[in-house]
Design a protein around this nucleic acid. Sequence first.
RNA 1: GGCGGGUUGGCGGAGAGGUUACGCAGCGGAUUGCAAAUCCGUGUAGACCGGUUCGAUUCCGGUACCCGCCUCCA
Length: 484
Amino acid sequence: MIRLRNSLTRGVEEFEPLDPDNVRMYVCGPTVYDRAHLGNARPVVVFDVLFRLLRHVYGAEHVTYVRNFTDVDDKINAEALRRQKAGAKGSLEELIRARTEETIAWYHADMDALGALRPTHEPRATEYIGQMIAMIAGLIAGGHAYEAEGHVLFRVRSYRDYGALSGRSVDDMISGARVEVAPFKEDPLDFVLWKPSDAELPGWDSPWGRGRPGWHIECSAMSRELLGESFDIHGGGIDLQFPHHENEIAQSHCAHPEAAFARYWLHNEMVMVDGKKMSKSLGNFFTVRDLLDKNIDGEVIRLVLLMTHYRRPMDWTEAKVQQATAIISHWGTLRRRLEKISIKPQIDPSFVDDEFLAAIADDLNLPQALTRLGRLKMDAELSGSDQATIDSFFSSLAFLGFENLAPSRAAISAAVEAAIGGVERIGVLVERLKSLRAAKSWAEADSLRDSLVGAGLKLQMGKGGEIDWEYSPDLDLKKLKALE
RNA sequence: GGCGGGUUGGCGGAGAGGUUACGCAGCGGAUUGCAAAUCCGUGUAGACCGGUUCGAUUCCGGUACCCGCCUCCA
């Protein structure tokens, strides 16, 4: 049984899909104008875990997960225009396309590094303009939208339940409104479905002239197209609850009055840095790529994100990075130890621990699941060589997306290649240490050992004289090279 | 101003009205040529003030402080 906290009802509810043969989830994706920052990564990882859980429970073939790319946006336009003015070749449309293509490729690379599975569909807004226009036309026909000065606006007063998701009333919001009210709006809260584009902006022909869609309509149109008028789960950051999700609900309900639209609304809390929400507008953000480039492994970032329950704000700190690195390193050490005695963990969904799954199914209680994981690890350690116990631990780890278990190794190897010509060079140094120790040349051996450790290698000496090693996050390639 | 969330041991971070959360770090031990790694052992904290209760960190009320949304934002 999966239980989820539904923002719509403010309570934890048992999850029952409309159709167990096709469980459907939509999550708001990024606006692709720049590298994804860590805040963008949190919903990706959180809903990745939910996706994995749904696949586990209903079968991988029976879950459809849609996450969009918003590739029509004034920030993208501005960047394309900036490039054109800086001398870039091509039409504005081409420059926009180039920018969004580039950003999507970055996004995929960065989210892949975090161990997130690709969604079933990743629609781009610009490929669903026709559906948006059709939906807007329907809203006008139904009296829920109106045209004014080349814009089409949604008539908020036409949807009785407007404000239900975020718990506000239209009247309250208007009284405390800080929005700049366009003169052609009937009501200050009416929002744009379609806006006109001048020659410097990308645009599509529509019944209301050449223009482009407002922000909210794309999610309504794409979810309708790919998941149907009613579907199961809609997710996103809590900062989208109002107005974005509220507006989506209003549009979709008015366009398809008989349908339920999204039934369970899930919102993740924000990523904080120095006690403040990480956001582009505050400028206190760093990108996932920044972290990866600092040799912080994707699995470490993933674990840090999962150590805090998704409905709590998560503070990004150096201490957490170290803690997560230590944990993953311990997992990897156990696996290597087992492999040395010829025990290879078998990874299979059916081996995943039930209690561990139950914690995840309880509104994605990952801290609880990680606690259970600690217990499974201890069992695996104490079991001696009991294959089932070992398989259970490692299958559970793999379920959560932890399979490499070598913090820093993947991220660092390219740098090692460049600096000293490959990992084999480290192997040579370790071999030298091994022979010195075998010859009981303790003074030389200890000196080399200390140098290797000082250069940022973690060494583990085995009983039979073998030496296992891994990178520590503070690897110093210059020092390592000097040892050769 | 309106609405919502939070405050747990050195740090991170959960559940549960009454029994050890757990992890990281630390400390002690085993092991080791010395170390590292690993293993074993070790921690009674719950912002403040009231209330309910046989009993509250857990429920209720209030106070303080912090954070988010109300404007593009994951």
